[in-house]
């Protein structure tokens, strides 16, 4: 066995740790025609989009209870999805209580479909 094999360089060692390898693989998957959509990859935003794909319209409170999150967290992530055009919301009043109802836009549904294809491709690649 050669010297290089017995004493691998720090550079080589870094690139083969599980964490680095995972990061490198994810970076590779971020490129190309089916690049990972980071916007819906985040867990709470993925939850919002998934819930709205199953249920045509959901109120802010329903989403909050379903995803077990806080008002602040949900509004921040819902706003990001709104800015990206993935979800849209209608604001009305039920009596004196403000009511925000979200629904998925066609762009949001396409983004979720693409994300599902991406995840399935990774799983099939391992089989």
């Amino acid at each position: 066995m050669g010297k290089a094999a017995r004493n691998p360089s720090p550079e080589r060692n870094r690139s083969t740790t599980p964490a680095n390898r995972l990061a490198a693989e994810q970076a590779a998957l971020d490129k190309g025609p089916l690049a990972l959509d980071r916007l819906i990859h985040e867990r709470l935003r993925l939850g919002i989009v998934s819930a709205l794909a199953a249920n045509e319209r959901l109120t802010f409170n329903e989403l909050k209870r379903l995803l077990q999150t806080t008002d602040g967290n949900l509004s921040v992530h819902a706003r990001k999805l709104e800015e990206a055009g993935y979800v849209a919301c209608d604001k009305t009043f039920a009596g004196r209580v403000p009511r925000t109802v979200y629904h998925l836009t066609p762009a949001g549904r396409r983004a979720l479909d693409k994300y599902l294809v991406h995840m399935e491709a990774i799983i099939h690649a391992m089989k």
């Binding site: 490198a24 998957l29 993925l46 991406h118 995840m119 990774i122 799983i123 099939h124």
Partner: peptide, 24 residues
């Protein structure tokens, strides 16, 4: 994606993808 990712995919990435699908 299959062709692109196959040579270097680790079991962790596969598990992560499976977890995401289950979450959805």
């Amino acid at each position: 994606v299959t062709q692109m990712a196959q040579p270097s995919l680790s079991p962790r990435l596969h598990e992560h993808a499976a977890e995401n699908l289950q979450f959805i």
